[in-house]
Design a binder for these strands. Structure first.
Lengths: 342, 342
DNA sequence: CTGAAAGCGCTTACAG
DNA sequence: CTGAAAGCGCTTACAG
């Protein structure tokens, strides 16, 4: 590998000048332009790439980002893939290496935590499900001088920068889409009271209520249908099955995930009602499943790829001492046959 | 961050001893046991973690693995997630940082190639679809002293270590499973002649033929049904649709992916035949989709998580100068309702 | 305008 | 049995 010394020898100057020219870091002194030019040319010709370890050592940085990834999304949702794709692309662009930890439970988190807490990373990105019980750890981490950014639905705390998504708008967009297509009674698949994930669903519900209120001239109707339900396929199937057994009439369903939506689709049709002619269905995540169900599913994208890229950008800015603030992305409607028809 | 100097000061020895004790690297000399003990205790108490940049600088290593990931699997297959999960876990365990590049086309590969070729990585793991046209680049990379391992179905070249999967066994296991359950005419969804992915499907086909031959007393029957078909949902639906329109009778289908299998399921039932009573269906990948279809799909796991972990282990061994060889994992059958019934 | 020198934190022959 | 010293490749005050 070619070093500063090699370039210095070739051009006939000291390595100090070479370093300053290539790093564009010349204090208040100027270097003769022809020398600078010669250095830059030589560096390019010789294929010089700075040794990141040497740079890291002297700069007391590590060009490494920690990534704490709480597995999210029902399996198959594609959220994990999209998020990682965005993170890796943005990190590569900024010459940042990655130290990735996947975890699913607080215990797993604790097990791996030391590796990052004592590890040589300049900043940490937390992805997935927000845990209030991890807040002290995150705060402690910041005290050690590391930058922290989260990629959660909502900020963990007001002063921890987050790249979020407007969950109220998720609920609103989905419901509004169904109402615009002529639906009257739109079921909202909500969550069990005790679920840790209930926060974002609470906000989505607000969006559903707002859209329903708009459609009903100001106040939501009194016969609103909110059905508590887990995010997975089986829960969705059970919930909608019970509803239909009770002979409750509805003509639209806002599911909380695409897995749920596919369950609703299968269950509704199995019980003899047609999608989307009699019941329109929309999910959330815009996942690959949407194109594999026998009626393609409409969905709402939570923009994980884009948000992941942005989160890495913010993290790098924070590492370089800039002040960064939380951002909120708008969700995007992806209509397909399960609402539009063919 | 605590350094060797801090520990040396506390214990009252030179940093050389501390380094040798902690690294377990003492040449032919011995250190007094009580001193060694004191050093280890101090290191632990003070929470010492070696600065990887300093170590990297002097060792001329970088504790960084390059990861060239050709996106594989139909979206939703979960292959990408499982693979990354395995890689990240194994890399963390070995204190290796990651430099991850996702790509989908040879052009994208070329764009990112320099970053790794000139980059400071000790080894590179290639994942996904093997490209014969990348072979010269891989060989050149090895010449620069980097270790190389691939996570492909089959080795790119005989001397490049690969963690593969027995594709013949994939076809055999699937077919044999259907035959054992009483199927007589098992359709094999194959691929277009020109597809770049055709290699592994050719091997799977051998497994299908072998199983059929076994069932038919030594030689496969003459009315074998091999249907060319893309790996995605739409292709699967079209292929099986055409077959059924031609009134061709069959009672088993070995699909090439779970997406395809779900398409077959929907199409077969839409045309009035029951799964698994009249037609048994099995896919490949054991993806999350399998549990979201209205009849849960049987499938064959290609062991991506386990193989990914193993590939990282081999890569690290190779980096440390050990000779490593290709391995082949056996696929695993995951039977569900689409073949077994309820 | 340019260079010599110190130092980042570690490893490892080489002396004692 | 243990330490002083050189050196990995770079950056950055500090001299000239």
């Amino acid at each position: 590998m070619v070093t500063l010394k090699d370039i210095a020898a070739k051009v006939g100057v000291s390595i100090s000048v070479v370093s300053r020219v290539l790093r564009n870091n010349m204090g208040q002194t100027r270097v003769r332009p022809e020398v600078a030019e010669a250095i830059r040319r030589a560096a390019k010709e010789m294929g010089y790439v700075p040794n990141p370890s040497a740079v890291a050592l002297v700069r007391r940085q590590h060009n490494t980002l920690g990534l704490f990834f709480h597995r999210i999304g029902v399996p198959g949702s594609g959220i994990q893939e999209n998020t990682l794709d965005g993170i890796c692309a943005a990190a590569r662009e900024r010459h940042q290496r990655l130290l990735v930890v996947f975890f699913s439970t607080t215990e797993e988190f604790r097990q791996e935590w030391d590796a990052v807490r004592h590890g040589y990373v300049d900043g940490v990105l937390f992805v997935g499900r927000p845990h209030q019980d991890l807040l002290p750890d995150v705060v402690a981490l910041r005290k050690t001088g590391r930058a922290v950014v989260t990629l959660y639905h909502e900020p963990l705390a007001p002063d921890i920068p987050n790249v979020g998504i407007d969950q109220q708008m998720v609920g609103y967009l989905a419901t509004r889409h169904l109402l615009d297509l002529g639906c009257h009674r739109v079921v909202f698949l909500s969550t069990q009271k005790d679920a840790s994930s209930s926060d974002f669903l609470r906000r989505r519900k607000e969006g559903w209520l707002r859209a329903m209120a708009e459609a009903y001239g100001g106040a939501p109707p009194s016969d609103l249908l909110e059905i508590p339900c887990g995010l997975d396929y089986a829960s969705g199937a059970r919930a909608i099955g019970r509803l239909m057994e009770g002979n409750v009439w509805f003509d639209g369903v806002v599911a909380a995930s695409d897995a749920q939506a596919s369950a609703v689709l299968n269950e509704v049709e199995r019980r003899g009602r047609r999608v989307p002619e009699e019941v329109r269905i929309i999910g959330v995540d815009d996942s690959p499943i949407c194109q594999m169900t026998h009626v393609p599913l409409s969905s709402i994208s939570q923009q994980y790829f884009e948000r992941a890229q942005r989160a890495v950008a913010l993290l790098c800015d924070a590492i370089h001492g800039q002040e960064v603030h939380s951002e909120v992305f708008p969700p995007v409607l992806r209509p397909r046959t399960s609402t539009l028809g063919t």
